[in-house]
């Protein structure tokens, strides 16, 4: 039983991070119909930037949490600027191009960012300094650290703020209109280019936060970390129904839970035939199964064939 609770906790923490990254994918997809393949690398840049700042300040007398906060505050604008630039340089010129052209530039951007990350921070794994309290608390026989609580709470707060932004503000309304139909939104006086830029900037800010969370939680950062994380988050976005923000949150949390429960129980489920190294198979298998029965994801609207 305690293993079950423990896996649920781990899954929630992982899932909150997935959800933040998945939001970046889903917002861009909702507005432009584009898989922003480079999004995972933005997470990586965010994690490593904050790490550099944190390492600089770690020797000073500032308390640990403040140092991490400054690191985060430094990483967010860097990622925002990066997201803005990526859209400007690699996607905007291709709005009218065949659908796969921006996908290829996205892949190109992803490769470039990875190499830039490697050139700046090297090939080695970087340990994230233990500045945050990690004393475990015990609930129901399972352990949870303050950091993990913080991650889940912060992620929930950010998502709530985002929902408010999209549903109640002028910008949010313009975003929804652009997602619905960019041409009409443009005719109604929405500056579509600006809205798309804002979407990228917001998504990138979320990516920065997720990057810091993931490296703090696993105490490690690496130039290649964005790729797999991005892949998982994209999977989560599709699982929930891509283009749908609620779907991204649900998909992220679900994927986190599925993965950690899968890793914990896959051996028992298959009589020891498959070990925890099949964790990823489990995640993808669930994804395929969901899509076979709900072709637009869990919360995606049912696409009626328009004739």
């Amino acid at each position: 039983m305690d293993i079950f609770i423990q896996q649920i906790i781990n899954g929630l923490v992982l899932g909150s991070i997935y959800a933040l990254v998945a939001l970046g994918y889903t917002m861009v997809y909702g507005i432009m119909g584009l898989i922003n393949f480079a999004h995972g690398e933005v997470v990586m840049i965010g994690a490593l930037t904050s790490l550099s700042i944190i390492k600089l300040l770690a020797g000073t007398s500032l308390p640990g949490p403040v140092v991490v906060l400054i690191g985060l505050a430094g990483a967010i604008p860097v990622c925002m600027a990066l997201g803005f630039t990526i859209e400007r340089v690699a996607y905007r010129p291709l709005r009218a191009a065949p659908r796969l052209a921006p996908l290829i530039t996205a892949i190109g951007v992803s490769i470039v960012l990875q190499q830039v990350g490697m050139l700046i921070w090297g090939r080695n794994y970087h340990a994230f300094p233990g500045l945050l309290p990690t004393t475990p608390r015990h609930i129901l026989g399972a352990q949870i650290t303050d950091l993990q609580v913080l991650i889940v709470v912060l992620a929930a707060l950010i998502m709530a703020a985002l929902i408010l932004l999209v549903n109640t503000t002028r910008i949010g309304r313009a975003m929804r209109a652009t997602a619905e139909n960019p041409d009409i939104a443009g005719l109604m006086g929405v500056d579509v280019n600006q809205i798309i830029s804002i979407t990228f900037v917001i998504g990138s800010a979320l990516a920065a936060v997720a990057g810091v969370m993931v490296s703090a939680n696993y105490s490690i950062a690496h130039y290649y970390m964005g790729f797999i994380l991005g892949l998982k988050a994209f999977t989560a976005a599709v699982l929930g129904g891509i283009g749908n923000m609620g779907g991204a949150m649900l998909g992220g949390v679900l994927l986190g839970l599925i993965e950690s429960l899968g890793a914990g129980y896959i051996g028992d489920l298959t009589g020891g035939f498959l070990g925890s190294n099949y964790q990823d198979v489990f995640a993808f298998f669930v994804l395929i199964l969901v899509l076979v029965f709900r072709p637009s994801g869990l919360m995606g609207e049912k696409l009626a064939e328009r004739a």
């Binding site: 997809y29 898989i35 892949l231 994209f234 999977t235 599709v238 891509i242 498959l274 070990g275 190294n277 099949y278 990823d280 198979v281 993808f284 298998f285 994804l287 395929i288 899509l291 076979v292 072709p295 637009s296 994801g297 696409l303």
Partner: peptide, 28 residues
């Protein structure tokens, strides 16, 4: 057979997942 009724990018992620599944099985 089970996935071709998916559209566009949904098909993309399912095929991606399939590719990863095959690789993970080869690995393990």
């Amino acid at each position: 057979a089970p996935t071709l009724r998916l559209r566009g990018d949904y098909l993309a992620i399912v095929t991606l997942g399939f590719g990863e599944i095959v690789r993970i099985f080869l690995n393990n």
